[in-house]
Every structure is written in C-alpha cells, then in structure tokens.
C-alpha cells in the first residue's frame, strides 16, 4: 500500500491511488493528491470537489460520468454541468479523477 504525506500525517492510499479511509480527506489532502496528478486546484475545481462530496453524502456512492454531469447541471447550472467543462478541469476523466481528489472511493460502473 502506498502512502501520501500531508501535514506530517501519512495517509494510506489504495492500489489506484484513492484514499483508503474517507475520513482522511482534508483540503490539504486534496491539494496533495492533485499535485500527484500535476494539477493545481482552482476555484472551479473546488466547486466540483465540494459537489462530489455532497453527492456522496446524499447517495453514499461515487457517481459515474453521466450522473456526475447530471448532478452538476442540477446544482451548478448547465454551463458547468456538461462534459466539456468537467473534462477540461479533470484531464478528460472527471468521474475518476475528481472522485480521487474529493476523497471518494473509485466510482464503480464507470465508463
């Protein structure tokens, strides 16, 4: 198992690089996970990460791409709830990468 060092704490990651324990997540952990992906988090990124955490809190699962887009459109409006916007922010794999940075499990049923 690999680990991620955040603020002197060692956080366990699963084989796909997702946080093994959802409770380990913090904004600092998100920054560190993003750095591993060579991504700098902007306000637009954070908006999606918070959205994903709200999705998980409500439904207890990580969304695949389609439901993520649908949920984003519902909560943030059509200009943000579309694949173009989300793909641009998350290197073309918004469901997988954004879930990772938001501290969610890897989405099942993901295309």
């Amino acid at each position: 198992m690999t680990h991620l060092i955040v603020a002197d704490r060692s956080l366990a990651l699963d084989k796909d690089g997702y946080l093994a324990d959802l409770n380990d997540w913090s904004p600092a952990a998100a920054e560190a996970l993003a750095a591993q992906e060579e991504l700098t988090l902007s306000a637009e990124h954070w908006e999606v990460l918070h959205l994903l955490r709200a999705f998980y809190a409500e439904f207890q699962l990580s969304p695949a791409t389609r439901p993520l887009i649908k949920y984003a459109a519902l909560k943030l409006g059509a200009d943000k709830g579309n694949s173009l916007h989300l793909n641009r922010l998350f290197k073309g794999t918004p469901a997988k990468l954004a879930a990772k940075l938001a501290g969610l499990p890897k989405p099942t049923n993901c295309l």
Binding site: F59, L61, P67, Y71
Partner: peptide, 21 residues
C-alpha cells in the same frame, strides 16, 4: 439506516437512480 446492520447504504443509493437515468 444501513450502519446498524453494517451494510452499504442501499436506500441512499436508490435515491441516485434518476441521476443514473
């Protein structure tokens, strides 16, 4: 509530069905 029986939260997951089309 799923937690007392230590299962994944099926009933919460069910609410996501419309978002999954």
């Amino acid at each position: 509530h799923a937690a007392p029986v230590q299962q994944k939260d099926l009933t919460a997951n069910l609410q996501a069905l419309p978002l999954f089309g």
